[in-house]
């Protein structure tokens, strides 16, 4: 079961975040996500895309549809910004180095089925998340 249908979108402005949300919503609908499942994934995408723009200085998002029948969706958000020195702190609720609520990263993790983050000072940040509609057979991230 190989990945198919990869879409790559730039995330360098507010308008593009909105475009990213629409693209994720469409992919989720096509993959058979329920309304609640769609909303969770789109909300997570909104948080992660905004982090890419605000904290990472812009980057891109990739949408990959996994599997064939009951399909999952994988999203990757990549930037070459400053990176996150303390991932545990960044994931904890209320932690922010900006003006946000500090709930985006941890919240996104709770909203998806799988969550991975690859980052370090000066290395940029890549966040990968994946979700499947209920009852779908999962493939690994």
């Amino acid at each position: 079961m190989s990945p198919e249908a990869v879409t790559r979108l730039p995330v360098t402005s507010d308008v593009q975040i909105s475009g990213a949300r629409h693209a994720v919503r469409e992919a989720a609908i096509a993959a058979g996500f329920s309304l609640v499942e769609q909303t969770k994934l789109v909300t997570a995408a909104s948080e992660l895309a905004r982090n890419t723009l605000v904290h990472g200085g812009g980057g891109h998002m990739e949408i990959t549809t996994l599997g064939r029948d009951q399909r999952g969706i994988r999203l990757t958000f990549t930037d070459s910004g400053p990176g996150i020195p303390d991932v545990a702190a960044a994931l904890s609720d209320g932690y922010t180095t900006g003006q946000g609520l500090g709930l985006g990263l941890g919240g996104a993790r709770r909203l998806v089925n799988e969550f991975a983050i690859d980052t370090g000072p000066g290395r940029g940040t890549t966040v990968t998340v994946a979700s499947w509609p209920r009852g779908a057979r999962r493939v690994t991230l």
């Binding site: 609640v36 769609q38 909303t39 609720d93 709930l103 919240g107 709770r110 909203l111």
Partner: peptide, 13 residues
Amino acid sequence: RPQIAQTIVQLGI
């Protein structure tokens, strides 16, 4: 709506 309530809770807002 229900889906909004759920995401608000999971975000920890």
